[in-house]
Write a protein that binds this DNA or RNA. Structure first.
Lengths: 142, 142
DNA sequence: CTGTGTGCAAAGGGTTTGCAAGTAC
DNA sequence: GTACTTGCAAACCCTTTGCACACAG
């Protein structure tokens, strides 16, 4: 994830630069993997209101700043920064997600795009999710 | 989904053939798409205990009779019959799932296998989920 | 000033746990 | 008889909604 300007980014996406939202977006900018609501509460100072976090996340997703990472098999929802120029109109997070079953983190594989699949007659694709489960690099080496 | 013997199947997978479990598995055998807990309560006679359903589903998954269908973006968990010879030891449900945003059903595309992806050095794949969202055949024609 | 964001309280909904009684094998 | 299943009650946890106050633009 290339460095980017937090406040600039909020402004560009039409989100007010409140201290809390700046802090939240900073978390995402610094994260090496997707964050769940729970991850976020742990990284923020204790006492931060849960609801405010939910609403900020919703706003970020809505405005194209982050994307909701597909959670499979009942896992808790996670979120990660959008890589490209997503907006309210269109998200373009066409990459594969990797879920490590050891460290339980979810990684955006920005460089690996989801392969095209030919569907049976009559089925029309809108978008797709591809999640690979396994062991991540750092967990493999330990 | 080829026809198969309900009671035989329960027996083979080491699950007791109680009236309720026979009825539940029958639902899956007749379903053309994945079923959620909610779908199931609607198809069973009213008053069937929720917890019993949860536990039966867990048992079926554990024993390799059904698989949990990847629910993406906070959807409710769904389940579908396993196609091949899954067991407690190993599930082999290597097919794509199609989620229709109109009828909100999830279909197992048994014939379409998940493509192999080459991962970066160090990442080891265990299994993967591929979910395509869009409009299904019957919803396209209406 | 105006619309958005925050904090608190409470409700809602899905899923899990505990335990006693019932049943398949 | 033994182990697994069921049913009921209650607990848990995540998420959403409502509302009054605070604050960015």
């Amino acid at each position: 994830m290339e460095r980017f300007n937090i406040e600039e980014s909020l402004k560009e996406h039409g989100i007010r630069r409140t201290p809390f939202r700046i802090e939240l977006l900073t978390l995402f900018a610094e994260a090496k993997h997707a964050l769940s609501h729970h991850d976020i509460t742990e990284k923020l100072k204790p006492g931060q209101d849960r609801v405010t976090i939910y609403r900020a996340l919703d706003a970020f997703v809505e405005k194209g700043l982050i994307h909701k990472v597909p959670d499979v098999h009942g896992a808790i929802a996670k979120y990660a920064l959008c890589s490209h120029d997503c907006s309210s109109e269109k998200h373009e997070d066409d990459h594969i997600h990797f879920v490590c079953h050891k460290c339980e983190q979810t990684y955006c594989m920005e460089d690996i795009h989801i392969p095209k699949i030919s569907l049976p007659k009559g089925y029309q694709k809108d978008h797709s999710d591809f999640i690979i489960h396994g062991t991540c690099e750092s967990c493999s080496n330990s």
